[in-house]
Design a protein around this nucleic acid. Structure first.
Lengths: 184, 184, 184, 184
DNA sequence: AATGAATGAGGGTTCATTCAT
DNA sequence: AATGAATGAACCCTCATTCAT
């Protein structure tokens, strides 16, 4: 594994965090390939060499960001996965993309970008959500719970993408439309 | 506009086409930023300089590809947009992503990649489809035809993405599920 | 093989030759590792990128130099190898290191440097000389012609090294001493 | 002078010795320029900074190694220089390169490497040997004792180099050949 | 004595692009 | 139309070295 062990502990030097934040911002804005390590260093107010001392690689830097991101993702899904009421599972899932605070758009844009830029396998990350939804649809006696769950997951993912790209005009309407569509 | 005038005419030299095809393939596979003009030239069996003679820029090369792609996209939508039977509009829309031949995956992968890599505005391209669907849903007395159309468009886009990435296990099931969902 | 094909033909661009000459000079003076490609480029009055266009690698540049050097080496040995008179073979061999013009010291210093710096296999290059000497010693009924030849080759190599390093005080005396030692 | 004072005393910390040994090994194997201080530190299991605390410089580290090596060299020559019997002087000299244990090849390879890599003046180190030989040849009434001594020194040096590089096939034959050549 | 964070300069190499032919 | 020589800027990364702890 590439990413620095320190990341997994709670101790991280100030500069290390600056690098990580700058990289997240720039990767998310310009893309991974289009962002040079020197730009990251400059943005973080740090010598370029330090990036490599802490993260070995440009790739290692990316992995460190993704590792941190995965934790965020898991905690987001946790609330849904642990929910026992199927109605609530669906409601919370639908609400999810619409309740992401703008401050986190950066992180999500990066996820979407990387999904395509570096052919990152992303589908397994949403799997817990799909499974929770499938279970909920089973409980609610839907005819094809698995397809239903997969479809909803993909659609919500698409909603999220649309929101982040700013190409959805009326997100509130879309949210309530979806809730109604699933009888909520 | 950057792209070479020749593109708009129907005459294109053999080498010009080779460049275009190679660029499409490489951009789609590796991404725009990660593909160097020298790689394109080598893959096309052409001198690097020729790319710039014909397309001015690396960006111009990209634009030329996209221009050609837009035509393909339009012709795909045409059949749907011109359909008057609302049921057929919906059916054809749903079927669309599932009936893209694998030989065209490359082109579509490029579209998806660029959507994120160069923050390409893509939503307007699907607008004709959304409008056709909205009209269909109006005719069929759906409650929120506009949201319905937007939602379906986004979802189908997501289906397409999933198909191309190879992360959809059972596309046939998903297709028939969708058709049934819309009462077809 | 790394080195540019052009080297083997007689056509070489002016700048290509400048690069080669500069590299020879600098590699010989400072050593291969201690000489940066940027130094070579500056010394040759050429952009650094050009080095890589023509020789692919820093290593490729080195190989190109060595390839040219090998030809020089072979032509030096040719006169000895083709000699049929055993006395002459020995005489010419002994004289060889002492008759290298100072203008070629650079090239030879590079050979010696590389022999150690990059663990270059060098012994096979002197093999033709050893064989010619062995044959001569056989003809002259020496007791251990093979050892005699190997010993002389190694010793002459050492003479050459000493000469090039400037650590031999009286090369003329040494030359005549050697000639006398072998009865010439 | 660069090298750490501690070297000249007989007390050296464990880590200091580890550094020295690692540096010797790596310099000998890869060359001085091609070996980074970080590699040395890693190989020695020591922080990189410690190298500079103890040896000031990368160069200082090298000097420390060479200083230690010089002692080894002197003790090797001592036995020859103190010998009064001229026959024995020559015999011991000839035997010298052939009796270096393989465990010391590393050290000698470094000497040879540095001779060329950093244009290290090496000839003065062999001077005591040359002088001892010259004296021996005088005693034995050789015609040109000085040349004879210089020649033998250089040749033996070349033997050593050949042995270390592994390019001498039959070292035993060569040794006895040499002994016979000098009437021993 | 020893560490590890931090740096600035420079390493080799690739880049998109221009130009003479 | 087409080539290939040529460039300068930027690329990712490693270097020897310093410093606070």
């Amino acid at each position: 594994m590439y990413f620095c062990k320190r990341l997994l502990t709670y101790k991280m030097t100030e500069k290390q965090e600056k690098i990580l934040n700058s990289a997240l911002e720039l990767f998310a804005r310009e893309g991974y390939n289009a962002t040079s390590t020197s730009k990251v260093a400059a943005h973080a107010g740090v010598s370029e060499g330090l990036i490599f001392r802490h993260f070995r690689n440009k790739r290692g830097l990316l992995m460190a960001i993704l590792a941190e991101g995965d934790k965020k993702l898991k905690s987001l899904f946790e609330d849904i996965v642990l929910e026992s009421d199927p109605i609530e599972v669906i409601r919370k899932s639908i609400i999810l993309p619409f309740s992401v605070p703008e401050s986190e758009y950066e992180f999500w844009r990066l996820q979407y970008k990387l999904k395509w830029e570096i052919e990152m396998d992303y589908s397994h990350k949403t799997e817990p959500l799909t499974m929770a939804l499938a279970l909920a649809f089973v409980k609610l006696n839907y005819e094809s719970p698995q397809q239903e769950a997969e479809f909803l997951t993909l659609s919500l993912d698409a909603m999220g993408a649309s929101l982040i790209k700013g190409s959805m005009n009326n997100s509130d309407k879309m949210k309530s439309f979806l809730l109604k569509k699933y009888g909520l």
